[in-house]
Simulated assay, not measured.
Amino acid sequence: MTSFAQHLTSEKRYSPQTCKNYQRDLQRLAAWLVGQSYAEWRAVSGHDLRRYVANLGRQGLSGRSIARHLSAIRRFYQYLLREGLVTDNPALDIRAPKSGRRLPAVADVDQLNYLLDVTPDDPLEVRDRCMFEFMYSSGLRLAELASLDVDAVDRKGGEARVVGKGGKTRLLPVGRKALEALAQWLPIRAGLAPETEPALFVSRRGNRISHRSIQARLSRWGIAKGADQKLHPHMLRHSFASHMLESSGDLRAVQELLGHADIATTQVYTHLDFQHLARVYDQSHPRARRRNSRGYDDQNSGQEGNV
């Protein structure tokens, strides 16, 4: 599996996190096959993999997680086929069980404005606010934020050059608030990072900040500043997408901004937008309001009815 991991990194240019996930999934399959007394990959059949998928389901894995496992297995067998180590790909016709699609959590616009307008308490919080402004301003993934370099941001043009999944580069607008936060962070960064460090966001030790540190700092920010819900990086990306779609209604533009290859991935935010509209309808339409036990609309409860 080591040569397969090198293949994903050097030829396919998969991200380190994707390679790590694939390797972990394949190690899990290998451990199960050893328990079933299989000694080599060429001996595995489609029937065996269906048993493995059923086993994953019994362990409580969601359809989405099982689909990721199968993706790793299919890719692995494609590689083995290319190398002449197997004669077929037993995972080709196997599909994961369907599971309900979870809608991403989204923060309220007013709450995000409040959390991002709070004055930082120390230099590292200046960095934190700048990171979170960039995430919400441009809809960045966690990995995209962490990999940003100083020279990738055009402050005059209000743009950032971002490297997304599959090494694809896209140019994104950066909002005024994010640029203001950047102007406050850069002098502090200069006192932490050596001249040879290209990373825009660095730790107190002056090296590129890790994914885990960004997650921990955002969670800490939410707790310290009084957020109503637990904050995490993907929530800011989801909030960006939902708020943009709610305001513009332009699904294609949001797809481009997020860097989605397939518009079906972006369409989940139309469901979020519909949920918002449904709540407004339920609260506002006179024929949709809930009625209390006395037969009056909740909005008018406690008032005397007029004939």
Rank of each mutant, 00 (worst) to 15 (best):
L33A: 04
D48M: 08
L172F: 03
Q275T: 06
D250P: 00
Y114T: 15
V34D: 10
R176S: 09
N306V: 13
S293G: 00
A30F: 12
D108W: 13
G206Q: 05
T2Y: 06
S65Q: 11
A5D: 06
S248I: 09
R212V: 04
G139D: 03
F4M: 14
T169G: 05
L142I: 13
Q299R: 04
L251N: 05
D250V: 12
G60F: 01
R95K: 03
Q215N: 02
D298G: 02
Q299D: 12
L148F: 07
Q184F: 08
L245F: 10
E256D: 07
L148A: 00
L8W: 03
A190N: 05
H69T: 12
D149H: 02
N207M: 01
L142P: 07
L81M: 12
V118E: 09
A253N: 06
H285L: 07
I263Y: 01
K168G: 07
A160L: 09
G249I: 07
R50Q: 12
A39Y: 01
H211F: 00
R74I: 11
L258D: 08
D151I: 10
G167A: 07
V174L: 13
L257W: 15
T18E: 09
M1E: 10
S213L: 10
Q184E: 15
G57A: 14
Y14P: 00
D121E: 13
H7R: 08
R252N: 10
L251R: 01
H243G: 04
W41H: 03
S138T: 09
I209M: 12
L192W: 13
D298Q: 02
Q267N: 02
K230Y: 14
G166Q: 08
V174T: 03
A288T: 06
Q283T: 02
G305C: 02
A96R: 08
G259T: 11
K165A: 01
P90L: 15
D151V: 07
P286L: 03
Q229H: 08
L182D: 03
L116H: 04
G226T: 08
L112D: 02
S210W: 06
R170E: 07
P286W: 14
T169P: 00
A146E: 13
M235E: 08
Y22K: 09
A199T: 02
A278I: 12
S248C: 08
L81K: 04
L148G: 01
R212W: 15
I214T: 05
V44H: 00
Y38G: 01
L85M: 11
P187M: 11
V34T: 12
V53I: 11
Y296H: 01
